[in-house]
Amino acid sequence: MLDVKNLYCERNQGLLFEALSFSLKPGKVIQIKGPNGAGKTTLLRILCGLFGEFEGEVLWDLEKHPIYLGHKAGVKDLLTVTENLNWLCELQQNYPSSDQIKKALIEVGLLAYKDVMAGQLSEGQKKRVSLARLYLINSPVWLLDEPFSAIDVEGLTKLEERMRGYVEGGGSIILTSHQMVNIDQDVTELLLKGANSC
């Protein structure tokens, strides 16, 4: 479903990666690892089409768009949690019922906040709002940038559980994380060495 061939990218006069090739198949997980500044986020941004200054090929073969979770949660302070979630789903051409929204909010432990302005939530809670999409949107690939940061232990277990179920159902995940991912599945590691080499 994804073929990356000969990717080359430099940023701020430093080489991030060259001749980088890998592919992603349904039901597989790729974890991008590497030191800070190695280009993990840049690689994810290239994959989802946010960053265009690279050479090489990124070939997607998908029927539906991936879900991307970036450093910024994409949650608006001036909208309530439910309004935010509705909008984020509509962007992905999903139109969940209020029942479905409710269920997703139970999963991420935010039901009590469903009509609260997102501006009053903590960083971790905002991230949970964005993560609630994983329960609502039917997408073949998740691109997750540091999904575990700012999330507490309980949330982390929940998230790993959701990832496990998703991968068993044929979904694929590319994520960046410094942590070990514990989802009983082969996790292919992709190590970026970073610009230090030159």
Binding site: C48, Y68, G70, G74, V75, L91, Q93
Partner: peptide, 14 residues
């Protein structure tokens, strides 16, 4: 831009 909504919009299928 600051809260990330804009990047979600730009990569959405809409």
């Amino acid at each position: 831009f600051e809260d990330g909504s804009l990047e979600q919009m730009s990569i959405s299928p809409q």
